[in-house]
Computed example of a mutant assay.
Amino acid sequence: MTKDIKISVVIPTYSRPQLLMECIHALALQHFDSEAFEVLVVSDGPDAATRKVVNSWKATGLLQLKYLSLQRKSGPAAARNKGWKNAAAKIIAFTDDDCRPDPEWLNRIWQHHRKDDDLVAYTGKVIVPLPEQPAITDHAFNTSHLAKAEFITANCACTKAALELTGGFDEQFTMAWREDSDLEFNLLKHGIPIRYLPVARVIHPVRKSSWGSSLADQRKGIFNALLFRKYPDLYKTRIRQSPPLKYYLMTGSLAAFIICLLAGNLPAAALLLGCWILGWLYFTAQRLMHTSRQLPHMLEMLYTSAFIPLLSIYWHFYGSIKYRAFFL
């Protein structure tokens, strides 16, 4: 290694070797001196397949690659911390294993960095390619919202000094949710400027999801409460996310239906069940408004729309109790 490392790229990953392979391939195509940047792949726990991918790329000699691993699965925030703390460069760029950085990505970051900027962060442009209608699924539509995020770990960079001052990522965020907003708010709290670089682009393809995956996604709502507890004012102005009113109305009418049914008040139970059905169908129609009308997808929307309100409220209050952060 004859040249100084200018940028260190950190990629958290776990058990997604094919996606990681494509991400590393995109980094190998960077219009940036391969001796001037390194790539640190951090596995969120022991993962032989990930190690094998990294070793196969190291053998090509096209990139300076390092493989690191957490002792046990702890989440992408912990993986990113291990990465930047072991990085050689003063600028740490973050992306994810399901992303493909544009060939000019690192070059644009480096061109816009001033050497006297010890405390600064950058956020780039995320592009989410979507299929044409009618093939857009609910999962794809939700993924497309990443393109509107203010600060996202799929495409951001910080000086190492900024990460050291803020402490980096909060490892209480054990899922890929709100840990990037937490870092953003922490940077703002410390007065560290975040500069938007629309010319630094990363492609975030929509990966395949399992049927009904939106139900499991509701668990992420726990971390809304953690972020609210830490930064209530910023959360209110920039996030403002909590279960919507229709979720409470649907869950409330369902609970009241069960109570009336058990009490033998059948007319009231029938009315409340009708209210829940109307809410369920309305919610389903909302989700189908911009997405596929193909039968399998419609059945998935009908099924998941029946349970999402209940799960969303459950995880919201679970997080509120766990982190002692009560908000509606």
Rank of each mutant, 00 (worst) to 15 (best):
M1W: 00
T2Y: 12
K3W: 04
I5S: 12
K6L: 14
K6C: 14
V10T: 09
V10A: 09
Y14P: 10
Y14S: 15
M21H: 13
C23P: 01
H25P: 01
H25V: 04
A26H: 05
A26S: 11
A28Q: 03
Q30A: 09
S34L: 06
E35G: 12
V39Q: 04
V39L: 04
V42C: 15
S43P: 08
D44T: 12
D44I: 12
D47M: 09
D47I: 11
A48D: 11
K52Y: 03
V53P: 03
V54D: 01
G61I: 00
L65K: 02
L65N: 02
L68W: 02
L68K: 15
R72W: 11
S74Y: 13
P76R: 15
P76E: 14
A78P: 11
A78N: 15
A89Y: 00
I91C: 02
I91L: 08
A93E: 03
D97P: 04
D98C: 14
C99Q: 07
R100F: 06
P103D: 09
R108V: 14
I109V: 09
L119M: 11
V120F: 01
A121W: 00
P131Q: 14
A140F: 05
F141T: 02
S144T: 05
L146H: 03
E150K: 00
E150S: 02
F151N: 08
F151W: 02
I152S: 07
T153M: 06
A154R: 10
A154K: 11
A154M: 08
A157V: 03
K160F: 13
A162N: 02
L163T: 13
L165G: 10
G167R: 13
G168T: 12
G168C: 10
D170N: 15
F173Y: 14
A176W: 04
A176S: 14
D180P: 05
N186F: 05
L187H: 02
L188C: 00
L188M: 01
K189L: 00
H190P: 03
P193F: 09
I194A: 06
Y196K: 10
Y196E: 10
P198Y: 07
P198R: 09
P198V: 13
R201N: 03
R201L: 07
I203M: 08
S210T: 03
S213T: 04
S214D: 05
S214W: 01
S214T: 03
A216P: 06
G221V: 06
G221M: 13
G221T: 08
I222K: 06
F223N: 15
N224E: 15
A225L: 09
L226M: 14
F228C: 13
R229C: 00
Y231I: 02
P232F: 01
D233F: 04
L234N: 06
Y235N: 08
I239W: 06
Q241W: 11
S242Y: 10
P243T: 11
A256F: 01
L262V: 12
L262F: 12
A263S: 13
A268C: 13
A269R: 07
A269D: 11
A270Q: 12
L271D: 13
G279R: 09
A285F: 00
T291R: 06
T291N: 09
P296F: 03
H297L: 05
E300N: 05
E300A: 05
L302V: 08
L302N: 04
S305P: 10
S305D: 07
A306P: 07
A306E: 06
I308V: 08
P309G: 06
L310S: 14
S312V: 11
I313W: 02
W315H: 15
F317P: 05
S320Y: 00
K322V: 07
A325T: 02
A325W: 01
